[in-house]
């Protein structure tokens, strides 16, 4: 065994490379704008944007907007997940139901949520329900598809075991189908959480009614470029945070699963 890795290589693990990457990106942005490569009437330098972002930290209006966006995101995701899991298990447990719904699901799934904006405005105006409708529609299919795959992935031997010990339908779903499908549900939740955030901000941006999306629209119409970009950077950070939270939940829920538990010395 050679030790070519050495100490310098070992520094480049953990969060260090990621942070270096961000620093390099911000540096390139700053240089590109200051050096005149990019017109600062369209993009202010990174330092200006960061100052604007920091200014938001003690702005009550901003925090209320964040709260509203995250509220719509969380509520929409929760409703979508509940509906997708219940329907997914019901449909997935029956071959007839699977075949009967397959083509309908494949037709409805690719419809982009944003295509529903006119409908949402017509029915709910600029209220929270409009945003929720789009968020739920977008997240629901992501999760449903995963649940349908997950329910199919029950091990036949485990299934025989449950049948031979006379598990009823409900016991089978609770103790076997649900845990077997959980890794898929978690993947669906993670994908759904990301599109739900995108749709929450899109809806606010286009429909209005408060939230970060509306702040972005206001900053744009007011010509406050530094604030506009600061808000964009913040929504990006929000996305990163959402992903980290979902991954942490996944690791906790799937501690027993091969994808998380890693190698076990036996």
């Amino acid at each position: 065994m050679t030790r070519t890795g050495g100490l310098p290589g070992r520094v480049l693990i953990g969060p260090v490379p990621g942070l270096l990457g961000i620093a390099a990106f911000l540096g390139a942005w700053e240089v590109a704008v200051r050096g005149g490569l990019v017109d600062d009437r369209y993009i202010p330098p990174a330092s200006t944007v960061l100052v604007a972002a920091v200014d938001y930290l003690d702005d009550g209006v901003f925090w209320r907007a964040v709260g509203r966006t995250l509220g719509a995101w969380a509520l929409g995701l929760a409703i979508a997940a509940t509906a997708a899991v219940v329907l997914g298990i019901l449909i997935g447990s029956s071959g007839v139901a699977r075949r009967a719904t397959h083509s309908t699901i494949e037709f409805l799934r690719p419809i982009p949520s944003v295509a529903l904006i006119p409908l949402a405005v017509l029915v709910y105006g600029t209220s929270l329900q409009s945003t929720l409708l789009l968020v739920i529609y977008a997240a629901f299919w992501q999760i449903l598809i995963q649940v349908l795959y997950g329910v199919q992935d029950v091990d036949p031997v485990a299934s025989d075991t449950a049948v031979s010990y006379r598990f009823g339908r409900i016991a089978r779903v609770r103790y076997l189908v649900w845990p077997s499908a959980l890794p898929y549900v978690m993947t669906g939740l993670r994908l759904g959480a990301a599109v739900a955030l995108i749709l929450a901000i899109t809806a606010e941006l286009v429909i209005g009614g408060g939230g970060l999306g509306e702040r972005i629209a206001l900053a744009q119409s007011g010509g406050a470029l530094d604030k506009l970009y600061a808000l964009i950077v913040i929504t990006g950070l929000l996305g990163v945070a959402v992903n980290l939270v979902m991954r942490a939940i996944e690791r906790r829920a799937l501690a027993w699963h091969t994808s998380v538990r890693g190698e076990v010395p036996v």
Binding site: D155, V157, A158, D160, T161, S164, R166, Y175, L176, P179
Partner: peptide
């Protein structure tokens, strides 16, 4: 009710989440 089965594939017959 009076029967119990032990399968060859113990790893798949036991529930990993329990």
């Amino acid at each position: 009710r009076g029967m119990a089965v032990v399968f060859q594939e113990y790893g798949r017959s036991l529930f990993a989440w329990m």
